[in-house]
Design a protein around this nucleic acid. Structure first.
Lengths: 184, 184
DNA sequence: ACCTGAACACCGTTCAAGT
DNA sequence: ACCTGAACACCGTTCAAGT
């Protein structure tokens, strides 16, 4: 089968899950795909862009559902934890994308929208929270989520146990604090 | 002058400030110090430990002062911004230390103590917030601070301007939200 | 005790040349 | 259009040998 951007991305994802970020090199990826290193650069611009695309894919399926903006945000964060818990070094990859192009992440766009609704609701005038503030809150929330996820993953690694898919109470507390702090 | 751990650390700090993390390699550092690369390993265990020590030094002088725990925390975060604003890639270096050994950072220990006081105050019984919760809140706060600092630094870099030492309102809002969310 | 020289096992990226 | 081969300019870390 010929090389393709899609094939590169999915193999990179497998490598990340199995061996971690340190072993996800362009050369290792090329070896895995049985091509020369240079071949990759015909399909992706560079390693940074590849990792940003990987981040998008990692959070692409997270959905926000709930009776209120606050509940939907909380739900989305729990979904996020479930989907990233088994992905080694998910935090670093997400942060890279957050630094380079936050709006490229569906999670950020959705969460920003919900934060704006949340502020509208609390202030219950209609003038509305500014979109900039919404995006700020959304990136903060994602930063908090991945930081706590990372802490749990590190803990699990050191303890030699597999991490639960269900987010621990400390994670939930941090998420609720972040949401509450923003809508107060 | 003979090589020493101290000299290595301060030169590494200079390199970080001037050229950024990507150019802070063990080999570059050795060249700057006019020694062979291997010489460094007589004084530091490895690059990771060197960066963790650098992180400690970067936040060592931040002090928390104010009439209440909440105000002191806010003050400390503003101090943090001032002290890190001119340090390129401060965020990445701090996060590394947070992942490896959070309690090695004075900032985390102090903030944890203040969060415990804060919770005691609000609940105004004396039984006390657990130390684990305090440290959790402290690491979250530091994660939020460096994430927002990073965002400002990136923005300034793209705009081609030098970042202000005074924290912007978005930073202050994020800090207040984090503190408020935890004491609610 | 402290440092050098040299090696080992890697990196990301580019680019002429081939098919 | 797509890929190889080979190079360029680097990495972190180790370790025998020297002073």
């Amino acid at each position: 089968m010929a090389l393709s951007r899609e094939k590169i991305l999915s193999t990179a994802f497998d490598l990340l899950k199995q061996y971690g970020l340190a072993d996800l090199s362009m050369r290792r990826l090329a070896t895995e795909l049985e091509v020369a290193p240079g071949a990759l650069y015909y399909h992706v611009k560079n390693k940074q862009q590849l990792l940003a695309s990987l981040a998008s894919r990692m959070v692409a399926e997270v959905e926000f559902r709930g009776p209120s903006p606050a509940k939907a945000l909380e739900f989305g964060c729990l979904e996020l934890f479930r989907q990233l818990s088994q992905v080694r070094e998910a935090a670093e990859v997400i942060r890279l994308a957050l630094a380079v192009a936050p709006e490229s992440l569906r999670f950020v766009r959705e969460a920003a929208r919900l934060f704006e609704q949340l502020v509208d609701e609390v202030q219950d005038g209609a003038s509305g929270g500014s979109p900039a503030a919404g995006q700020l809150a959304a990136t903060m929330l994602l930063h908090v989520c991945v930081s706590f996820l990372e802490e749990e993953q590190t803990r699990a690694l050191l303890a030699g146990v597999t991490i639960a898919e269900q987010a621990p109470s400390s994670y939930i507390a941090a998420v609720q604090a972040s949401i509450a702090g923003w809508s107060g």
